[in-house]
């Protein structure tokens, strides 16, 4: 659905069901340069099982009006604005990669609005490889190829997508390429590289939390995910074996099962 946040048009997938203010809200926040599409194997389930779902396109991504927000702090505040814009009091947040930083920032700045948080492939800091950052800021599509290489574990490189016929790396790459390498991915990578408040934000989290980590993650290595979890007093940790950074797609089924249990317990219908 399309709606306005701070007078700018925003797109969010509602998981195939109409948005309903009477149902508990879950907001899904994508990673760098990506869009709502990455969440399709989680959002539809929740939308059809009693929740209102918003898999948002961050500003300047997917079908949301730009420009992209330049800092994680702004993005965290913007998520709180999304909750206000749809006239809800509170939401659970689920983030992937950069989206985890956004979740940390939002949940620490606006604790009263956040019911629970799910973090997939997260870390307390995501410093960027300087060459990758430079390529992305120049709009060079090679940045996308490198990102897709590093983001995917064995399943992404060999195959075996949970949805028959889909190709992990080419699908992920097309989401980024269909947006703007320079104005979305480049801005996102710079925002991640600049962000230094992750562990401090993590310490402030009081709501239930879960870190879902892939043991073959090369973008946010497992030890970094564990370190983040250690800074969140309330965090559970689930490690998925043989899984890279794109947990939400590479092991979509396992990721969904973990999220289902966590959200049902902490933000019941």
């Amino acid at each position: 659905m399309k709606f306005k946040v701070n007078n700018k048009e925003v797109f969010a997938s509602t998981g195939g069901r109409p948005f309903d203010k009477k149902k508990p809200l879950i907001i899904f926040i994508h990673g760098s340069g990506l869009s709502h599409i990455t969440w399709v194997l989680q959002t539809r389930y929740f939308a059809f099982h009693g929740y209102s779902v918003l898999a948002i396109d961050l500003p300047g991504h997917g079908y949301s009006e730009g420009p992209a927000l330049e800092s994680i702090e702004e993005q965290g505040k913007w998520i709180a604005d999304v909750i206000d814009s749809v006239e809800m009091e509170e939401a659970s947040l689920v983030g992937h990669s950069q989206g985890c930083l956004v979740v940390l920032e939002c949940a620490s700045q606006f604790p009263d609005k956040i019911k629970s948080i799910g973090l997939m492939g997260g870390a307390g800091a995501i410093p960027m490889n300087p060459e990758l950052l430079d390529l992305a800021e120049k709009g060079d599509p090679k940045a996308v190829d490198l990102m897709m290489d590093w983001a995917h574990g064995p399943a992404g490189h060999f195959g075996g997508h949970p949805v028959p016929g889909l190709h992990h790396i080419n699908l992920g790459g097309s989401i980024v390429i269909n947006g703007s390498v320079k104005n979305a991915l480049g801005v996102d990578f710079r925002a991640c590289d600049n962000y230094k408040n992750g562990f401090e934000a993590a310490k402030k989290i009081k709501c239930p939390a879960i870190n879902i980590l892939g043991d073959r993650d090369r973008m946010c290595p497992l030890k970094e995910g564990k370190k983040l979890a250690e800074h969140i007093k309330t965090s559970e940790v689930e490690i998925i074996p043989n899984c890279g950074h794109m947990i939400l797609l590479e092991e979509a089924g396992q990721a969904l099962e973990i999220l289902k249990k966590f959200i049902r317990n902490n933000h019941p219908v």
Partner: peptide, 20 residues
């Protein structure tokens, strides 16, 4: 709502390898 096989008219694991 999730990926997987239901019936081989729609998809099949061997055919899926060829597709990918």
């Amino acid at each position: 709502e999730r990926g997987g096989h239901i019936y081989s008219r729609i998809s099949n694991p061997t055919v899926q390898v060829l597709e990918e």
